[in-house]
């Protein structure tokens, strides 16, 4: 189950939207070790870009030794990845981080924008009643992939599809209920999810982001403020790459 570095091979690459890509990677045993909510670090083949790019695991196919990532092109690294084709090599480490707990209680999965991909593997693995709330700015991606696993509620900020507004508006408008929330997305959304869960008196597991250097817990670059003293430095700074990226919302201050 430990973290490995492997030279993965691109199985396929597909453009889902203008700047959103889906890539299947041949990674060997890592696919079987990976849990929903964990991530991999991809290294650029251009050595002027030294740091790993953390990308969530969207789906795994352990029998084929492959995993899927869905990512948005936002800079030089992701732009490079979007140019990869089947057969191209890419160096990665993984699986990294902790992943989501798989509880039995009726669940609400809430994701926004490029926080949507890790919810797919989670939706596949959660063996419980679940509602999947997906928030988009305008154009949809990946929503069809969720349909086999639960009821899907959509929101768009421009009102072009589903509820007009954000994912939290969708929860209220569609009267979505559940006993536990799993979430990933932009920080303002996670803040709203945390507040909503507290108001409802239910647990929420949220996945956080921060700039990373080592990705394995050694450099202390990627910390978030935690309510409890952390195990590593005995201060109030948990490492997102190692102690997270998934935290019980009560554990962290956003």
């Amino acid at each position: 189950m430990s973290t490995k570095m492997v030279l993965a091979t691109v199985v396929s690459q597909e453009q889902l939207l203008g700047d959103v890509y889906s890539m299947w990677l041949d990674v060997g045993d890592m696919a079987g070790d990976a849990k929903a909510g964990q991530f991999i670090a991809l290294y650029s083949s251009d050595h002027s870009r030294l740091l790993p790019r953390p990308i969530s695991i969207c789906e795994v196919a352990p029998e084929k030794g492959s995993l899927r990532i869905v990512y948005r092109v936002v800079g030089k690294g992701t732009e490079e990845f979007s140019g990869y084709q089947a057969g191209d090599p890419v160096r990665i480490t993984g699986p990294l981080g902790n992943g989501y707990p798989l509880l039995k209680a009726p669940a609400i999965l809430v994701a926004g924008g490029i926080g949507i991909p890790p919810m797919l593997e989670l939706a596949r693995r959660l063996d419980c009643e679940k509602t999947i709330v997906l928030g988009y700015k305008d154009k949809l991606f990946l929503n069809k992939d969720f349909e086999p696993y639960g009821k899907v509620v959509i929101s768009t900020e421009d009102g072009s599809c589903g509820v007009h507004g954000n994912a939290l508006d969708a929860i209220r408008e569609a009267k979505v209920t559940g006993q536990v929330i799993y979430s990933c997305g932009p920080t303002p959304m996670l803040r709203a999810v945390k507040a909503y869960a507290e108001a409802q008196g239910i647990e929420a597991y949220i996945s956080l982001e921060e700039k990373m250097a080592c990705g394995i817990g050694a450099c202390l670059a990627c910390v978030c403020n935690s309510t409890e003293v952390d195990d590593h430095s005995h201060v109030h700074n948990k490492r997102i790459c190692k102690d997270g990226p998934v935290f019980n919302a009560r554990e962290v201050i956003l």
């Binding site: 002027s48 870009r49 030294l50 700039k211 990627c222 700074n237």
Partner: peptide, 18 residues
Amino acid sequence: VPWPGNPAPRIAETPSGM
């Protein structure tokens, strides 16, 4: 004694460095 360090973001990538 334990030191909490600085607020995040704590790092940034730069050409051939950080």
